[in-house]
Design a protein around this nucleic acid. Structure first.
Lengths: 354, 354
DNA sequence: CCTGGCACTCTCACTGTGTGAGTGCTAAGA
DNA sequence: TCTTAGCACTCACACAGTGAGAGTGCCAGG
C-alpha cells in the first residue's frame, strides 16, 4: 500500500469526508476553509496533485475540484478511518426490535429492515444455509392418491414443506409408520448428513432396507432435493432508498442494480465470500467484481449462532457513503443479531420437553 | 359517455394506436400518412380540435402533436378496442409452465413471472386469503419449556407455522393429546370459522371445556391471530421492466411506484376491489385512486378455484401500453391459472387417503 | 518548502437565433 | 355545408456565443 506524509493523509481524509458529506467535487479553497487547515490553498493544490498522481483522487474536469477514486476510498477505509460509535438511539432501536421478535426468519428480515432504515441504504441479509440445520422430524400427510404433503421440521424450529407424488398410493397408517421409522433413523443429524445418507441409501440395493423405510427415504429424498429453490436465501430491504442518490440515478445503472437485487445470484456470492472471514468487510466499487454494483459499495459482517458463522448482514449503497457510520451499524447489527439468535431469543438450543 | 362520428372514432383510434406504438405526440400529417386516411391533414386538424374539446386528447405544447388523455384511453378501451387474440407461442408457454408446476403458491408466483415476462411490464398476483381455506390439522411440537412450534395444515396443502410461548410447560404427550382433541373438534371448517369459534370459546367460562382443549385453543388462537402478517399476500415480479419507459423515468415518480410495490398496501386494495366483478378490469391513470400509480395503468382479472373467485392476477405499466395485447394476456393467464388450481394441478379437492 | 499572484481552462447558466414541426384560420372549391 | 390548400404563427429544440465563477498549474519571492 502507498504511504503518505501525515499532512497528505490529513488532507485526503478531510477531502473524502467533505465529498461524502455533500457529493460535490471539492476544491482547494473550500477544503482549507472547511477543514480549518493551517496552510494555504496553493499548498493544498500541490498536495492534491501528488494524491492525483497516486490515483487516490481525480478531477472530473479541469476546473472542478477533486473527487476520491475507488482506490482513494480504499486507502481511506483501511488507514484513515476511525470507527464511529453508534448513536445510542439507534442502538436501543435495534435492541428493542430484536427483543420483541421471536421467529428466526422474521428476526433476519427485521435485521435487514433495520439496516436499511438506519443507514437509509439497501439492507441485505444472507439467511443461514439450511444444510447445517439439525433434522428433527418429518411428517407425511396424504392428500390424494398421488399427492403427499411432506413437512420437515428442524431443530431450531424451521418448517419446510413440499407436495410430492409417490409412485404408489399409501394409506394414512403406512405414511405414519414410514415417518416414524424415518424419524427414529435420522433425528439429530444435520440436513446435509441426512441428504447424503439418503443418496447412499437409495443407491444401495433396496433389499436390505425395510420396505417402509425405503418408501420414506424415496419421498424424503424428493424434499431434500427440492430444498434450495424453496425459500429466499437472501432478504433485501429498502432498495428504493437508493433512488435518492444522484450518482445512481442513471436509469440503466439502476435497472442493472435492481435486477441484481431480484436475481440475488451475485449478491449471494458476495455475501458467501464474506462469510469466510470474521468482522466487517467492505467492497468498494469494482472490488465486488460485479458490474451491477458498479458505483456501489457493499459493507458486510457475518453473524453467528452459538459461535458458528452462519450468515451475513450487510448494506448496499453508493461508493460515496458514510463508511464510519455504516460500518459500525453493520457491525453492531451483526453482533446483536448473533446474540438474539443464539441464546434466549430463539434460534437453537435443546428442545427440553419440559 | 361521449358519442363521436364514425370518422372521429376512426381517427382517435388511429392516433392512440400510433402513440402507443412510439410514444411521440402525433401530428396531423403523420397520422394521415401512417393510418392511410383518405382526407387531408387540415381535416384531421379540425377533427382533432373537436377531440381536444371533448377532453380525449391534448397537446403537450403548441407545436407538438396530440397525445391521448386518460379519458381518451378510457374511451378507446371501452368502445374502440378489439381484443387481440394471444400469440399461440405465448399461450403454449403459459400452459407449459402451469402444467409443470405443482405447489399452488409456486403456481401463483409463476403466473406473476409469466405476466411480467410476456408483457414486459410488472406482473402482480393477489394470493387467495387463507381465511377461506379449510382447516385440516394442527400439530404442537415442544422445543423448550416456553416455546412450542405450531404447524397448521389446510385442506389444500398450505402449511403455516409459528412459534408460540405457552403459559406453562407441556409434556410431549400433553401436546399430542391437545392436538388430537383440537383436530377432531375443528377439522373441515374454514380457517375463518375456526378463528371465530376460538374467540367464542375463549370468552366462555373455561370450566365447561376439557382442560386439554382449553390449552389447545389458547395456543391455536395465537397462531390464528398472527396469521395475516406471516406471508406475502401479493406477488410482484418484473418491476425493473418499468425502467424501460421514458414516461416513468422521473426518479421521484419511480421511487413512489417502487415504494408502492414494497408496501403492497395500495395494490392490495386495488386488487381486492377488482375481485368483486368477473372478467378483465382496467384502471387507467388516476382511476386507481392512488398517487403512486399516477402515470400507470393496471389491468387485472380475477381467478377462481372450483368456481369461486379467490384472487386476482394483473399487470402494472405506463398508461401508454398495448391494451389489446395486455388484456388478452391477463385474461388468458387468469383462466389458465383457474384451471391449473382447480382440477388436476393441485389446489383443492378431496384428500382421498387412497 | 511554503505561499501569493496570475494566467489559463472549463463548466454552467443565460441568451439569441434558426429550423422544423405542427397548429389555427381563412378563403376558395366541391 | 363540408373539405382542402395556403399561410401566418407559435413553440420546442438544437446550436452557438458570452460572461461569471470556480478551480487549477506554475512561477517567483519570502
Amino acid at each position: 500500500m502507498v504511504s503518505l506524509t501525515p499532512r497528505a493523509e490529513r488532507l485526503l481524509k478531510a477531502l473524502i469526508e467533505q465529498y461524502i458529506a455533500d457529493g460535490q467535487p471539492v476544491g482547494s479553497r473550500t477544503l482549507v476553509k472547511q477543514a480549518g487547515l493551517e496552510f494555504s490553498p496553493a499548498t493544498v493544490r500541490n498536495i492534491m496533485s501528488d494524491l492525483e498522481e497516486l490515483g487516490l483522487i481525480r478531477s472530473p474536469h479541469t476546473s472542478a475540484g477533486r473527487v476520491p477514486t475507488e482506490r482513494g476510498y480504499r486507502f481511506f477505509v483501511n488507514t484513515l478511518l476511525a470507527a464511529k460509535p453508534l448513536h445510542s438511539i439507534d442502538l436501543a432501536h435495534i435492541e428493542d426490535r430484536f427483543q420483541s421478535e421471536q421467529d428466526p426468519q422474521q428476526l433476519l428480515e427485521s435485521a435487514s429492515g433495520l439496516l436499511s432504515q438506519i443507514t437509509k441504504l439497501a439492507g441485505i441479509v444472507r439467511v443461514p444455509r439450511r444444510t447445517y440445520a439439525e433434522f428433527r422430524q418429518l411428517d407425511f400427510l396424504g392428500f390424494s392418491a398421488d399427492r403427499v404433503l411432506v413437512i420437515l421440521v428442524t431443530h431450531d424450529g424451521q418448517v419446510l414443506n413440499k407436495v410430492i407424488h409417490p409412485k404408489r398410493p399409501y394409506s394414512p397408517a403406512e405414511l405414519q409408520e414410514a415417518a416414524n421409522v424415518f424419524n427414529s433413523a435420522y433425528a439429530g443429524r444435520t440436513l446435509e448428513e441426512v441428504r447424503q445418507s439418503l443418496l447412499v441409501a437409495l443407491e444401495r440395493d433396496s433389499e436390505d432396507m425395510q420396505k417402509m423405510l425405503r418408501s420414506a427415504v424415496e419421498m424424503a429424498h424428493q424434499v431434500f432435493t427440492g430444498d434450495q429453490a424453496q425459500e429466499p436465501p437472501l432478504f433485501v430491504t429498502g432498495e428504493s432508498n437508493l433512488f435518492a442518490f444522484p450518482e445512481l440515478s442513471n436509469t440503466d445503472r439502476l435497472k442493472r442494480l435492481f435486477d441484481a437485487f431480484t436475481a440475488k445470484q451475485d449478491l449471494l456470492h458476495l455475501l458467501d465470500q464474506s462469510m469466510a472471514s470474521q468482522g466487517v468487510q467492505i467492497f468498494i466499487g469494482a472490488e465486488s467484481g460485479y458490474d451491477a454494483l458498479e458505483a456501489c459499495s457493499v459493507v458486510t459482517a457475518p453473524y453467528e449462532v452459538d459461535g458458528h458463522i452462519v450468515g451475513t448482514v450487510g448494506v448496499v449503497g453508493p461508493t460515496r457513503m458514510s463508511y464510519d457510520r455504516v460500518i459500525s451499524i453493520v457491525d453492531v447489527t451483526a453482533r446483536l443479531l448473533s446474540g438474539a439468535l443464539s441464546h434466549g431469543g430463539s434460534g437453537s438450543r435443546d428442545p427440553a420437553p419440559a
